[in-house]
Amino acid sequence: MMAQVFFYTGIFLCVLMLLPLYRAVFGPTVLDRIIGVNAIGSKTTALLVLIGLLYQQVEMFVDIALAYATLNFIAVLATSRYFQKRKGLYEEPTNE
């Protein structure tokens, strides 16, 4: 019974990922895309542990999820650091 619960939560998480994916693809500014990627990354961590539970290999998948969370964090930091200087942000003229 619990396997079904995990399976359907996993499916629901995958469907949920489509919304930030839309934001990541069509986001007006570059930084919106970073938010989309960050949201997808945090959902993937939850999904990884879920898959671990489904395959009764929890220890392995928990480590993978931890590594993935770290990578997601570093990626967000690196991209936001990179995009500070670039001026690819002006989708509408800001009132400076």
Partner: peptide, 12 residues
């Protein structure tokens, strides 16, 4: 970090 990058890049 994202908000800081947005602020620094002049997004009001």
């Amino acid at each position: 970090a994202i908000a800081d990058a947005g602020m620094r890049a002049g997004l009001w």
